[in-house]
Computed example of a mutant assay.
Amino acid sequence: MIWGRDELEWSGLVDGTSDFLAERGRIRRTTSYTELNSVLHRRTGARSFDFAKDSERAAMGALLGEVASRNLSEVGALVSSIVLYLNENDAGSGFYRLAEELKLLTPKPTADQRLIFWANQVKATYDYYS
């Protein structure tokens, strides 16, 4: 079990997320956690993530981290950069934590450094897919 999902379901979520983010990248558009959740449920038939639960928010973060890490060498950017909180204009804290773990972003960056890094990741994702 991976985050409460069997391996086949998790694999489908990873593939579905990769596909959807590539689609959004091709049209140079961001998405939200809410939209991604809805699309994954509709396309894979997997149960939706329940964002009212900490464990389910963490599972979505782990899913995005896996997809971003898996696609990094090909895309040259963290594709999860285009997934934003609803009504926000920035990636979640897990995005920056992953970037630091992968040594793409200096530890404890300033707000300006984070914003510049994020904008560059979005642009690189769009440029790759479009």
Rank of each mutant, 00 (worst) to 15 (best):
G12L: 09
G12C: 07
L13S: 11
V14E: 08
V14T: 15
D15H: 12
D15E: 15
G16V: 06
T17Q: 05
T17G: 03
T17W: 03
T17F: 06
L21A: 05
L21W: 06
A22N: 07
A22I: 10
E23G: 00
R24A: 02
R28C: 06
R28W: 00
R29S: 13
S32R: 13
S32F: 06
Y33W: 12
T34K: 11
L36F: 10
L36Y: 04
N37L: 12
N37G: 07
S38V: 04
V39H: 01
L40F: 06
L40V: 07
H41S: 13
H41N: 11
H41F: 14
T44S: 09
G45L: 08
A46G: 13
A46W: 08
S48E: 12
F51M: 11
F51H: 12
A52F: 09
A52D: 09
K53T: 00
D54H: 07
S55T: 14
E56F: 06
E56H: 15
E56K: 11
A59F: 04
A59V: 10
M60G: 06
G61F: 10
A62H: 09
A62C: 11
L63E: 07
L64F: 09
E66R: 12
E66Y: 04
V67L: 12
V67Q: 07
R70Q: 13
R70G: 05
R70E: 12
L72I: 15
V75I: 15
V75E: 02
V75A: 07
G76E: 10
G76I: 00
A77Y: 04
L78E: 03
L78C: 05
L78M: 15
V79E: 05
S80W: 04
S81Q: 05
S81W: 03
I82P: 00
V83M: 07
L84V: 05
L84Q: 08
L84F: 14
Y85R: 15
Y85Q: 12
L86Q: 12
N87I: 01
E88N: 10
N89Q: 14
D90E: 15
G92L: 09
G94F: 05
F95E: 02
Y96Q: 07
L98M: 11
L98A: 02
E101P: 02
E101W: 13
E101T: 10
E101M: 11
L102I: 03
L104N: 01
L105I: 12
P107V: 07
P107N: 14
P107W: 06
K108S: 11
K108D: 10
P109E: 10
P109K: 04
P109L: 08
T110N: 08
Q113T: 08
R114V: 03
R114K: 15
L115T: 15
I116K: 11
I116P: 01
F117G: 02
F117M: 08
F117Q: 03
W118P: 02
N120C: 05
Q121E: 15
K123G: 00
K123S: 04
A124Y: 02
A124P: 01
Y126T: 08
Y126Q: 09
D127A: 12
D127I: 00
D127V: 00
D127T: 06
D127F: 02
D127C: 04
Y128K: 11
Y128V: 05
